[in-house]
């Protein structure tokens, strides 16, 4: 009976963790659950959809990148395994669209060169202060880790991107410089609606609806936050399979060894 209680209490501990991870958002009396479209990278064997990551990178490049940095990413990451997997030449081409100050010449003047694979993504602003000044005093967060840095994860980002244009419930005051978004804590978000139908023209011909672009860029951001995910799950499968067999072997070894002890 006591063993049962211990097991039960363990289950309780873990169910508390999982209960905490599922949050609901309330705005003006209405409750909004996170929209969960179901991404390809979910579940123990889920992987990223390469075409989706490429579309997502296009949305980031053409829309988000004008305000949001992604300082943890280098252009070489675009061609690495488990990501969008562009060819190295394509990744080089993306890099060459941007310049970077790299050292000084013999006269002490800064030398500007085009970016190469080993360079990071460019930052749209020179400083945090400049970023704030251009965005009504709000700092557009770096997006490299954003799906890990928000409770609700990628579903929160996906929901947030579609949370614009909703009617402001009565009794909710949103300041002029903010937009109403039921999923944003406090409901007033400094980011204006970023995505409109056909904000980008997809290279692969996919129709750029708001849902499509939100899902694509969310997938790209999820990859950026966890570029190791595919390798992690692949290795995880091997380790877990090995462990399960090993546990069984250890179980039989232990019972056989202890059989004669009374």
């Amino acid at each position: 009976m006591l063993k049962l209680i211990k097991i039960k209490s363990l289950i309780l501990i873990f169910s508390v963790f999982f209960a905490l991870s599922n949050e609901a958002y309330s705005a003006g009396g209405e409750t909004y659950d996170l929209i969960k479209p179901g991404f390809s990278f979910e579940g123990p064997t889920g992987t990223y959809d390469r075409a989706q990551l490429r579309r997502g990178y296009q949305v980031y490049r053409e829309v988000c990148a004008s305000c949001h940095s992604m300082k943890q990413l280098a252009f070489r990451n675009l061609s690495q395994k488990g990501g969008p997997e562009y060819t190295e030449d394509d990744a080089k081409l993306f890099a060459s669209e941007y310049t970077v100050i790299d050292g000084f010449d013999d006269y002490g003047d800064p030398v500007e060169r085009t970016r190469i694979l080993s360079d990071r993504f460019p930052n749209p602003y020179d400083s945090k202060e400049a970023a704030k000044a251009s965005n009504n005093g709000a700092y557009p967060p770096d997006l490299s880790l954003i799906t890990k840095a928000r409770s609700g994860g990628y579903n929160y980002i996906y929901s947030l991107l579609q949370g614009y244009g909703k009617e402001i419930p009565e009794g909710t005051e949103i300041s002029d410089t903010l937009s109403y978004n039921p999923w944003f804590p406090g409901n007033g978000i400094a980011m204006y609606q970023p995505l409109y139908e056909e904000s980008v023209e997809y290279e692969d011909g996919t129709f750029a609806s708001i849902e499509q672009m939100s899902a694509d860029v969310t997938a790209f951001l999820a990859w950026s936050a966890e570029p190791e995910m595919e390798e992690r799950k692949r290795l995880g499968f091997i380790v877990m399979s090995f462990l399960i067999i090993f546990v069984l072997l250890m179980f039989f070894t232990t019972t056989r060894l202890w059989k004669d002890v009374h």
């Binding site: 770096d142 890990k148 840095a149 994860g153 936050a225 995880g236 462990l243 399960i244 546990v247």
Partner: peptide, 26 residues
């Protein structure tokens, strides 16, 4: 080894479940 099963579940399949999202903000 049984303990490792649980440990590896977290490492490989839910590595951030026990942490807090805010710690991925500098």
């Amino acid at each position: 080894t049984v303990f490792l099963l649980l440990f590896c579940y977290f490492i490989f399949y839910n590595p951030n479940a026990l942490g807090h999202a805010d710690n991925y903000i500098e």
